[in-house]
């Protein structure tokens, strides 16, 4: 039993004695939040830095090249002074469309299978394997696209260039499968079982429940995941740099060699472009275009998932 009265020392007294030392202590209590805030501003500074970087060089670029030439011109050949960005945008869109054609059906099917059909055990095995796909470095995908997918496809399309939009797009599609699968599955899992049971109790099959109950309820989450995946496909760099070629090409033929916005940035930065030359600043103008595209997609995705969030 504690008896506070007949002991040699009292903890409470020692605490009081230590209180005098607490001035250094106060400094920590006041200083720490300030330091943490300082760290938190780094992320804001990064954003400002990105905007500053892109804007300052882009403005410089548009002093030499007119807006109309950049956005309406149809030839991109910076080393011969042609700065029409349309071929790069076309290349990016071509890759994105191919990628979505691959990733949407497979990703969505995987999400439905995992969330509605698979047993808990199957799910626990398949899901991590799918997520490995998301962890593979893009340079590895690029290698695979160039050395395996392209040669295989050229058996079908015999006159195909070894660098082509198709193999790049397919592999970008595979890369974004886990994104669609996992985010869509989360959205479907969030649909309460009571809704499913209600329909199943009326004699609906699992597929009918999925199509008429789960999918509509999870619709916004699914759309948000697709938009996010599109944004990722637009910004993907290494796969298209390695496999899709370096030929700015205003085409919708996926067997041709093309160049994306990202691939040009790599090409431009790698080559001997001197600091503040027009070609150098064109990298940033292209970067700005890319940044705006992906930012719009991200904001759209956030908007969809917030705006249409179902409350169950």
């Amino acid at each position: 039993m504690i008896s506070k009265n007949n002991e040699q020392y009292s903890v409470q007294e020692m605490i009081q004695a230590n209180k005098n030392k607490k001035s250094a202590f106060n400094l920590i209590e006041k200083g720490v939040p300030a330091f943490l805030l300082l760290c938190a501003t780094v992320s804001v500074a990064t954003t400002i830095g990105i905007l500053f970087t892109l804007l300052s060089e882009t403005i410089g670029f548009f002093q030499n090249i007119s807006l109309t030439e950049f956005y309406l011109g149809t030839k991109w050949s910076p080393w011969t002074d042609h700065f029409g960005v349309a071929p790069l945008i076309a290349g990016t869109l071509l890759i994105t469309v191919i990628a979505i054609c691959v990733a949407l059906p497979i990703g969505l099917a995987a999400a439905i299978f995992l969330s509605e059909y698979a047993s808990e055990r199957t799910r626990k095995i398949i899901k991590p394997i799918l997520e490995i796909l998301a962890g593979i470095p893009t340079v590895v995908y690029g290698f695979f696209a160039l050395t395996f997918v392209s040669p295989m496809l050229s058996n079908i399309f015999t006159d195909m260039n070894i660098f082509n939009a198709l193999s790049g797009g397919i592999v970008v599609g595979v890369m974004i499968i886990p994104m669609i699968a996992s985010l869509s599955e989360d959205a479907m899992n969030a649909v309460p079982n009571s809704l499913r049971e209600g329909a199943l109790g009326l004699g609906a099959t699992k597929f009918e429940v999925t199509r008429r109950v789960v999918m509509p309820a999870a619709f916004s989450g699914i759309i948000a995941s697709i938009v996010l995946a599109i944004s990722r496909a637009i910004g993907e760099t290494m796969i298209v740099t390695i496999a899709a070629g370096a030929t700015p090409n205003l085409t919708i033929d996926p067997t041709e060699s093309i160049q994306t916005l990202t691939a040009f940035i790599v090409q431009g930065a790698k080559g001997d472009t001197s600091y503040h030359s027009t070609i150098y600043s064109s990298i940033y103008a292209v970067g700005m275009t890319l940044f705006v595209f992906t930012l719009l997609m991200n904001i759209l995705s956030q908007y969809i998932s917030r705006r249409f969030k179902e409350d169950y």
Binding site: A40, T41, S43, V44, T46, T47, G49, I50, F52, T53, L54, S56, E57, L228, S231, R232, I234, G235, E236, T237, T262, I265, V266, A269, I283, Y284, G287, L290, F291, T294, L295, M297, N298, I299, Q302
Partner: peptide
């Protein structure tokens, strides 16, 4: 700050490269 962090996560990696190049 929260929204900013979320959006930074979606910026293509190559744009970070441009940031690094400039700064």
């Amino acid at each position: 700050i929260r929204v900013n962090v979320q959006n930074l996560a979606g910026v293509p990696s190559i744009v970070f490269g441009l940031l690094g190049l400039t700064f």
